[in-house]
Design a protein around this nucleic acid. Structure first.
Lengths: 347, 347
DNA sequence: TTGTACGCGTTATCAA
DNA sequence: TTGATAACGCGTACAA
């Protein structure tokens, strides 16, 4: 194990070292490096050359300490595995890249404790702002209340806490839910159930409300048993659908609107395992337009959410909030489109 | 525009402020906050209370400046949109979370210039280490050569530059490619083409080599026209397949091994648009086990890459390299499994 | 045009 | 057990 390799020069080159090598002051080097005026062209050139030669890289840690600005934002997402979120992250990344920020990615795994830990870590890292989509068991609004009052700028995306003093970038959840429910109604379905998200999460509440409005508008009864809380994941959809399937035959719904596509997939799985078919026995629609939606054996009718745009707009909004003094607090609803496929039996 | 809202107290509380409020020195507060010894239990208690009351959060920027340690790693991925990478990121996130690091996510978009910019930005942020999967047009090894010599610890994952002084965490690309090619051969296929990744990217080279070895071993001819460079994305797969389909009938391959699943999807698309079918006219196999692989109308035979594990192991390796003095440089090959479905016509 | 002094928030070190 | 001082690398404010 002869170790003939050169020891790595672990220390980074500093302005001062460059300055000493050149016999000028640190400030002159600083000015040259940052393209400030009041540097003679000749010395600037000497300095830039030396900087290259010595492999100097500016130390943003030190810069941040004096400027209390890190050009960094923190992103907290609830589930990397739900395909919607990576696409949101793409949009965020695009915005941060073009505006010269860096992005800390954290994942709460739908767990509020982990979400709080992430917030604390990000604050300690002195991020300039935070982008959050709340976990499904985030209940303690006072946490965000205080964060918004005392912490860095914050923007919610997709899953928001509204009217708490932060902007929210999402989609038209309520009207889209109404639209897709009415689509079912328009094709003759009357007994429609809803696999709902946790009602304390905005999008869960809004999608439920949209569903209920549509049913009410068309004067269709909604039995209590037809609103089943499923969470946001496949397993939850499977379980919730199982409960519906266990209802007495007469009470069983003829169609199901799931709060999102993963839940719809779980529900479809439950239906098929009972030996029933979609949409013949039970029609199913979702919300998201997950990449799998059009590929499954009975392609899923759903609402397309422009995830990339949500991310990009949210990140831009956050950065504007960081950089401008009086950027207004807004609730932005990006418009969705309905994708009609065969799972609703409407074609 | 009445602005009745309270101005946000933008300044963070510092150790010094806590100290002054208590009439002790900064050091004592520092010691108490960091659970060091030599602090009287009574004063520790007073301090902790005050810290809570004033809402103090440690400033990691300042900490990092003195310790030159940021507990932060940078991750550079080539394509967020390829489903493989978000899953890798999940694994990385899991590891960083459990080891108390934060993760900067950057996306090169398969562009080497952007990749270099990302590296520079990460270095300026003084990350403790970097995790890279190279872009498909990364050619300038000297860049990484220098980075490895003068920069922070670096670990490659999936797409590596080997024997350059950094660890590489990937899968058994060559043997798996050989395996899936032999699977085709074993079912009677002789005229097999390969849609290859860029040969300068390790995984492109290795998968090609595995393919060639298998063909050679079974003494099947490989015409030059049957090796078509496709890149790593669907469009590339579509184009490359089109070239194969444009060959004179007698030269047309009977089966195709694509460098990854997106390319296979593009190829299948091209085949179907010609009015041909898979696997009846042309069999197709891929590599990745993308989430869509089993869902498409003719489910894809492919190699399952444990993306989550790749990410988790790579991040752990990097952090060990950061924290230990003499962590060895390794090439880790995680074992894949073949998923046989109908696209190869072997069932 | 260039240089000097100081401070950002924290910790290591040494003194009390 | 506690405190004073210097240092981390840089930029602001001012002086030369």
């Amino acid at each position: 194990m002869g170790n003939g390799e050169k020891r790595k020069t672990d220390k980074n080159v500093t302005l001062k070292e460059v300055a000493q090598a050149l016999g000028v002051s640190t400030m002159t080097v600083s000015r040259a490096v940052n393209n400030r005026s009041y540097v003679q062209e000749s010395t600037r050139k000497r300095i830039i050359d030396k900087v290259r030669e010595m492999g100097y890289t500016p130390n943003h840690v030190a810069k941040s300490l004096v400027s209390s600005k890190t050009y960094t934002i923190g992103v907290i997402i609830p589930q990397i595995s739900h395909a919607f979120f990576p696409e949101v992250v793409m949009g965020i990344e695009e915005a941060t890249y073009s505006m010269d920020y860096q992005l800390f990615l954290t994942n709460s795994g739908e767990n509020f404790e982990r979400e709080k830990k992430a917030v604390d870590a990000l604050r300690s890292k002195r991020v300039d702002g935070i982008l959050v989509s709340t976990s499904q068991d985030t209940t303690d609004y006072s946490f965000y209340n205080q964060l918004i009052r005392t912490g860095p700028p914050l923007v919610f995306f997709d899953r928001c806490i509204e009217n708490i003093g932060a902007s929210c970038i999402g989609v038209n959840d309520e009207s889209a839910s109404m639209q897709i429910t009415e689509h079912l109604i328009g094709h003759g379905y009357k007994n429609i159930a809803h696999l709902s998200g946790p009602s304390r999460v905005t999008i869960g509440k809004k999608r439920l409300d949209g569903f209920l409005s549509a049913m009410k508008k068309h004067m269709h009864a909604v039995h209590d048993e037809w609103i089943v809380e499923s969470g946001f994941r496949e397993e939850g959809g499977f379980k919730a659908m199982t409960r519906l399937l266990d209802l007495p035959q007469k009470m069983r719904p003829r169609a199901v609107f799931a709060v999102n596509d993963p839940v719809a997939f779980g529900a479809i799985d439950a239906i098929l395992r009972r030996g029933l078919t979609v949409p013949h026995d039970i029609a199913v629609v979702g919300f998201t337009n997950d990449i799998r939606a059009e590929l499954i054996s009975c392609p899923l009718t759903t609402i397309h959410q422009p995830a990339y745009d949500v991310g990009k707009i949210a990140a831009k909004k956050l950065i504007k909030t960081i950089e401008k003094l009086n950027e207004p607090i807004e609730n932005v609803e990006i418009v969705t489109t309905m994708k009609i496929r065969s799972s609703c039996g409407c074609s």
